[in-house]
């Protein structure tokens, strides 16, 4: 089988194009898409798709509440929209439609309605100050009726987007700005290589499943998006010290794949959860509590969280770097749990 090495932006673009070709109900709706000479969304994901699908790339006014409502209505009427925001922070403008309508419509209609709607949002602290930087995962993982995933490599990005388009439920996909591409047009300081060898032909990656990215026996490190990459780097350093870390890409933030996570924790008995975003009220709190309920009796020591400080995202690089969990802090946390 032949493969091509692609970054996340390119693999998402391929996935969208393939799904739009496969199913004419699929369309894109968002800001600054389908503008000739434009950007293809804030991060080039939809670049050029308007040439192939001139009628199914809906460029909207700057009206997140409105166009998420439009996507909601279109999904109810049998279309399969892919709605994206330029920055995850803007999801808060659309939160009424997402939380009150998109997530609840099936339930409060007594099962009459399907809501096949994909939502995409770039997150992560990247030198843009406080309002183009937040990790919004925490605000959506606790909403019944939503599936929430976070993609950390190009293979998953393509396969999970395709799975999301084919799912009859609303799916929120979080993407990280530092993972779209580490070379060329998408380069920015701090970008990490998240390219994958993408096979030719159709494939999907199931929603709802975590992935073991590195096997190990001493400690389970859980991360997603950029933190997954940092966790893998930490595992490499820990290996040099003789500590065998198992690294799991949580990937499905709602629902959590407690089967995969639990199986690992039962073997290692030690857990470090790494989250970009303030520690208080984060997704890692939910994961920690779930691990306690699922397999707490297997733990040899308390669960450790490595997360950001409880502050807004600062601009100046020295503070932003202090805000974002880094490899040394993950290594240190793993060393600490190894004391038990």
């Amino acid at each position: 089988m032949t493969t091509r090495n692609l970054g996340i932006a390119e693999s998402l673009r391929e996935a969208i194009a393939e799904e739009m070709t496969r199913d004419e109900r699929v369309f894109c709706i968002g800001e600054d898409i389908a503008v000739p000479g434009g950007w293809g969304g804030a991060f080039t994901v939809t670049l050029g798709l308007e040439k192939k699908f001139p009628d199914r790339m809906i460029n909207t006014p700057i009206a997140e509440l409105g166009f998420f409502g439009v996507a909601c209505g279109a999904a109810m009427a049998g279309m399969r929209p892919i709605a994206d925001v330029q920055y995850g922070d803007f999801l808060l403008l659309a939160a009424d439609q997402i939380i009150n309508n998109i997530a609840k419509m099936r339930y409060m209609s007594g099962g009459q309605i399907s809501m096949p709607l994909v939502m995409r949002a770039p997150v992560g602290a990247t030198g843009r100050g406080s309002q183009h930087a937040q990790n919004l995962e925490r605000y959506f993982t606790g909403v019944p009726g939503l599936k929430v995933v976070a993609v950390s490599n190009a293979y998953d990005a393509k396969g999970m987007l395709k799975a999301a388009v084919r799912d009859d439920n609303p799916v929120m996909i979080f993407e990280h700005k530092l993972l779209y591409g580490s070379k060329g047009a998408r380069f920015e300081p701090g970008a990490v290589d998240a390219t994958s060898d993408i096979p030719d032909g159709d494939y999907t990656v199931p929603l709802g499943k975590a992935a073991v990215r590195r096997e190990g026996s001493d400690v389970t490190i859980l991360g997603w998006l950029l933190m997954l990459h940092y966790s893998l780097q930490a595992a490499e350093r820990l290996a040099a010290e003789g500590i065998s870390a198992e690294v799991i890409d949580v990937r499905s933030l709602s629902p959590l794949d407690l089967e995969t996570i639990g199986a690992s924790v039962r073997r290692t008995g030690r857990v470090v959860i790494v989250e970009e975003g303030p520690k208080t009220g984060g997704v890692s709190a939910e994961i920690a509590a779930s691990v306690m309920e699922e397999c707490g009796e297997y733990l040899r020591c308390p669960v450790r969280r490595v997360a950001s400080a409880d502050v807004p995202v600062p601009f100046t690089p020295v503070l932003e770097n202090a805000y974002r969990p880094d490899v040394p802090r993950i290594v240190e946390a793993a060393r600490e749990v190894m004391q038990f």
Partner: peptide
């Protein structure tokens, strides 16, 4: 906006 979305569909 939901009605606008129905109409778009």
């Amino acid at each position: 906006p939901v009605a606008a979305g129905l109409a778009l569909a």
